[in-house]
């Protein structure tokens, strides 16, 4: 009787995980295709093109997870080839801030230093918390690299959220986008840590990530449209 119950529970788990993997692939594909349509068709802003590449990487990561789940009939929560896709996405998000957007928002004046310090403090706090939580489970160097990257993205997102508008209200229109990126990074870190602990929360956190993913690209397009008109 117990083994029958266990089998039913495992079946439910399999169904839930498969649905979550499928939904997350669809959401990231939506963001990628929408971004590609908007940014590459009409030679849109470089910033949008880089974010589109980020969602391309997230889609590949999600596709790998789904394929692994279907082929092996179990999820792989350790660091794997699919995690490289997420890592690549984070590299692109970092690149979009560092290489494209930061020069528009930051004029390097001394009056802005305090905002940079606040952002640095918040992103370092994220990194320290992640490292402490990882030490509680099995410390994984690749997940640590991932949290370093997401902290770097968080630094720029916080900075652009706090900085006063110095040029044509560009930072103001990107505030919602920056908020979404902050939530994406924080929930991604929580998801990674919940996977380390094999927590039952993981699929729900992944669903939350999907929800945020859907809104990021349209929000970025809206912001870029405002600053270019």
């Amino acid at each position: 009787m117990d083994s029958q119950k266990n089998r039913v529970r495992m079946g439910e788990c399999f169904g839930l995980n498969l649905t979550v993997e499928f939904i997350s692939l669809l959401c990231s594909l939506f963001a990628f295709i929408y971004g590609a349509h908007v940014s590459f068709k009409n030679r849109g802003a470089l910033f949008l093109q880089i974010i589109t590449c980020a969602f391309g990487c997230f889609s590949l990561g999600n596709l790998y997870d789904l394929c692994y789940f279907v082929c092996m009939e179990r999820a792989d929560y350790s660091f794997n080839i699919g995690s490289l896709g997420y890592l690549g996405g984070m590299f692109f998000l970092f690149s979009s801030y560092y290489g494209a957007m930061d020069r528009i928002g930051d004029n390097k004046s001394k009056s802005l230093v305090k905002y940079k310090v606040y952002s640095l403090l918040l992103s370092s706090m994220n990194l320290i918390l992640c490292t402490i939580m990882m030490y509680g489970a099995n410390f994984n160097i690749f997940l640590f690299v991932s949290s370093v990257l997401s902290s770097a993205v968080l630094y720029f997102a916080f900075k652009h959220l706090f900085l006063p508008d110095i040029e044509n209200g560009i930072l103001k229109v990107m505030k919602q986008y920056n908020l979404l990126i902050i939530s994406l990074c924080v929930i991604k870190n929580l998801y990674d840590i919940s996977c380390l602990y094999s927590s039952a929360l993981s699929p729900y956190l992944k669903l939350l990530l999907c929800t945020i993913t859907i809104f990021i690209m349209p929000q970025a397009v809206k912001g870029v449209k405002k600053w270019s008109t």
Binding site: C53, A54, C57, L87, F91, S95, Y98, G99
Partner: peptide
Amino acid sequence: TGIFGLAS
């Protein structure tokens, strides 16, 4: 930064 993303 971009090249690491593309390699990944």
